[in-house]
Structure formats: C-alpha cells, structure tokens
C-alpha cells in the first residue's frame, strides 16, 4: 500500500527555458514542497517567472529540466490527456481575471469543472456548489451572467469554480490584482477560509505584500531562483 502523500506539490531542480532564436531561461532550478492544506504566497518582480512556475505547478506547462510531482504523480510521465485529468481532479485555478465563460450563468460556471469531468453535475453536486456560492454571498446571483456581476462577485464565483472538483491544491495567479482593496480583501479571506475548512493547499502569486504576509509561508522568486522569506505566519 502506497504511503499517503505528504506534499501536494514537490519540485526538484525545476528549470524552464523558453525556446526561440535566443533561448530565454526563466527558472533556474526550483526546489519546492507544498504540504497538504498549506497556504503559500509567492512574490517577485514582474517577469521573474512566477506565472511560469504556476503554469508548471498546474500541469499546464512542462519543465525543461527537473522533476515536478503533483499529488505524488510525476507530470513528465503523463500524456496530454493524463495532464488534463490531473488538472481536472487535483488542481484548481484562479486567475487575475476571473475568466468565467460569458455564455454560462454563475452557477453553470461554478459547476463547469464537474461537467468537464463527468458530463453534467448530479443534483447532489449542484446542491453542494450552490451552497458554496451562497456561502460566498452569491446566493442571489446564481442564474446571472458574469457580465451583469461585479468584479469581486465574478472572482468569488471563480474561486468556487476552482474548488468544484475538491482539488488537492488551488493555484491563484494574482487573484486580487484586478479588484479594489475591499473586494481583494474579501476574496483573499475567502481563500484562506476555504483552505482552512476544506484542507486544500493554496499557492498564491501576488504583488500585494500585505496579502502575502497573511499566508503560511512567503516565497520569493528572483533571477529564476526561489528563496523562502518566512516559513510560518506570525
């Protein structure tokens, strides 16, 4: 019997170089471990490779060198469909822009990962997603289109969507970047609550030092290398 996975994400010597006329190295060897239920924030200058790292940690991109294990699975061993299944079952994404589908309602957007996984959501799954939406204050917006909702509401809906398949980890790329201070604070607190209650690990890339400091751990990327700024929240 396999031992339970302690780390939802584990990278060893992760390197990424973008090919081109002049190859551009972005990540020069990242060793990272994210534990179950941990809330990690990553900070760094624009162009430092934060988003590239997040894409690789979410199995959207593959490293040039090194090993990346997500929920104990080495992503280099997976096919495109295997990576898609991993993204569907283990990873949730929250982007700077909410990226909700305008053709779908708030509820339909939130159940989308379930629909992709198994065709359509069962009544129980729909009920669970509805309860999450109600929890995040979107009970009155269930059947509204994203273009009729505010930025903060859309981002809260996007967070529920990221949680729909009960993933092991949620990767958030500047989730509050497009929101005002108040809405950003709300969204961040929501992610913290979900992380604590459901036991889902969060990796959040942010430029907001104040939010970064509220995480369990702060990591910084500089010149393609990662260093730990703080290990535990005060």
């Amino acid at each position: 019997m396999a031992s339970p996975v302690q780390f939802v994400i584990e990278t060893v010597g992760l390197k990424k170089t973008y090919a081109g006329k002049v190859p551009t190295p972005v990540l020069l060897g990242i060793d990272l471990q994210v534990a179950v239920g941990e809330f990690v924030s990553i900070i760094g200058q624009s162009g430092s490779g934060k988003s590239t790292l997040l894409n690789i940690l979410g199995a959207l991109d593959i490293p040039t060198e090194g090993t990346v294990k997500i929920d104990g699975v080495d992503i280099s061993t997976l096919t495109d469909d295997g990576l898609a299944v991993l993204r569907s079952q283990v990873v949730g994404f929250v982007f700077q822009s909410h990226f909700l589908l305008e053709e779908l309602t708030c509820l339909e957007n939130a159940v989308l990962p379930i629909a992709i996984r198994s065709g359509s959501a069962t009544p129980e799954e729909t009920e669970w997603i509805t309860s999450l939406l109600v929890r995040v204050g979107l009970g009155g917006q269930l059947h509204k289109s994203p273009d009729t909702m505010s930025g903060g509401e859309n981002q809260r809906c996007a967070i529920v969507r990221a949680l729909a398949n009960k993933p092991s980890i949620v990767l958030a790329d500047e989730p509050t970047g497009n929101l005002d201070r108040h809405s950003g604070e709300e969204v961040f607190q929501l992610m913290r609550q979900m992380s604590a209650e459901i036991g889902i690990a969060f990796v959040m890339v942010t430029h907001d030092d104040r939010l970064a400091r509220a995480a369990d751990r702060i990591l910084s990327i500089e010149d393609g290398l990662m260093r730990s700024l703080r290990n535990k929240a005060p």
């Binding site: 979410g58 959207l60 495109d80 469909d81 898609a84 299944v85 993204r87 569907s88 079952q89 949730g92 994404f93 982007f95 990226f99 589908l101 989308l112 990962p113 992709i116 996984r117 969507r161 990221a162 398949n165």
Partner: peptide
C-alpha cells in the same frame, strides 16, 4: 482562444 485555454486549465481534454 482564451476560453479554450480556460477550459483546458480546468481539465478539458483535447477531444472534448
């Protein structure tokens, strides 16, 4: 294109 990227990021397979 962006929507396709979103769908793939949340687990949609190429054949879907």
């Amino acid at each position: 294109a962006k929507q396709i990227g979103i769908l793939k990021s949340i687990g949609a397979r190429s054949n879907q």
